[in-house]
Amino acid sequence: MSSREKILQQIKLNKPTGTDLPLQYTFDSGYENTEAKFKEILEAIYTEVIVVDSLVELKAKVEEMYAGVVNKATTIPELADWADFSLQLSDPHELEMIEVAILQAEFGVAENGAVWISDNHLKHRALPFITQNLAFVIPRNALVNNMHEAYQRLTDTTGWGCFIAGPSKTADIEQSLVIGAHGARSMVIFLVEN
């Protein structure tokens, strides 16, 4: 008998009497202002949230913010001539050079500041992790209150996706918080009005 069959057979033999799934497994978070909550949580995890009116304003903003920086990459067509690092490459290891990446993401979650990004928006899964600094761009109206709403929204069937909440961090040395463990050292989120 294979291990698979052995394991499944023993589980069948040993499992307890069947119980039912709870009917309710989602809860409301009645935040007065979803965006204010989103900002408050992200500030606490060292992430700036910037509201811009349009992609034109976004471009002006990032030109000012990242002036003098080289190796800039983006997945946003409107920022194409701001970027100087092409993502048209096949080996993700080459992304290692990137200093800042500005990436389109799908939506944000107010209760924990997480932003959902997936294969839908990204050719290279490694990009949001390997870049030294990270910025996400999401529509201003794409904020949900909590993780239950997030999963209701998450109907995509892509191969990979990730909730990312703030820059990479660790507290493994005497519980002292250090920002910039292996992933991005900093994070900015742009909410675009139109």
Partner: peptide
């Protein structure tokens, strides 16, 4: 923490 920094969903 309200959530870990990365909650990565691997499917394919």
């Amino acid at each position: 923490q309200p959530v870990t920094t990365y909650s990565s969903h691997f499917k394919k």
